[in-house]
Design a protein around this nucleic acid. Structure first.
Lengths: 147, 147
DNA sequence: GTCTATGCAAATAATTTGCAGTAAT
DNA sequence: ATTACTGCAAATTATTTGCATAGAC
């Protein structure tokens, strides 16, 4: 995994810095879709002098070389996803939690032919909006209190 | 159109203020997915004393009563969409332009049964990422210059 | 008259930028 | 030795909040 990343960096003539590797390692098995700040806090444990700006820059770099995905549908902050397999997301509009959905719609979700020459598609993502189980429970108990 | 909005406001016990109507009117035939600032500038022409904070608040309100959709996938800013018909979006990752795609995937894009009882879906949106025609042209000419 | 909505200013929070020093090549 | 990368601090930008006043009901 990290080897692949190193190779990708080399190919693009980018430098293999300990910070880049550390950030990638923090992210690579993480299914929680963390934001920059969370990643920063984790990486700091090993690299106490790293700065938040470097984290932001590095995450952009990692996306550009195809190492991670950047998720920009959270109202509050950008989130980062190391999972590059075709998958989609469920967003709880109450608590903002993001859940993965490993379901491949690439056979059915297609750009209509009339647009394929006007727009060069690099990928797509399906985002489901709704209320997660936890929030539904909470809401029910709140309604009970309200009475 | 505006009549429906007024009714929705009434139903929820919300007040029918000139600001709310003005913001909705600005938005209702707008296909450009404007941000709060742009909406603010337009509404200002008729209501010079309106504040940006009111615009933000009102847009939230309009979403809550089902009058508009809020689009949160632009890196830079939240965008607002008056089109409530089932449609999806193409995003140019270079210029950030958002194009509508009126194509209904509701028959094929479904949450797997294993999740339907754990997550209450209110809707979904397909986002295509790519490069728009204009940006492709620009890029080509830039490459030419670079040589 | 009551109570919500507005306008203003200040606060917040995420992200970006400029630049000098540091380290990977 | 070169040139890209990092760390720091400051800047920027979108959005939110608190509160007094105005306005819809």
């Amino acid at each position: 995994m990290v080897e692949k990343l190193i190779e990708s960096l080399r190919k693009k003539g980018l430098k293999i810095t300990p910070q880049r590797l550390a950030i990638f390692r923090v992210l690579k098995d993480n299914k929680s879709h963390p934001g920059a700040e969370e990643i920063y806090q984790r990486v700091r444990k090993d690299y106490p002098t790293i700065s938040l700006a470097t984290v932001y820059q590095t995450l952009e770099t990692l996306e550009q070389i195809g190492g991670i995905r950047i998720l920009r549908f959270d109202r509050r902050k950008t989130r980062y996803d190391p999972d590059l397999s075709p998958h989609h997301h469920l967003i709880c509009t109450r608590c903002q939690k993001i859940t993965d959905l490993h379901d491949d719609y690439s056979e059915t979700v297609r750009l209509p032919p009339s647009l394929t020459n006007r727009f060069q598609i690099n990928g797509f993502n399906v985002v489901f909006y709704g209320i997660c189980g936890e929030c539904r429970k909470k809401r029910k108990s709140q309604k009970r209190k309200a009475k």
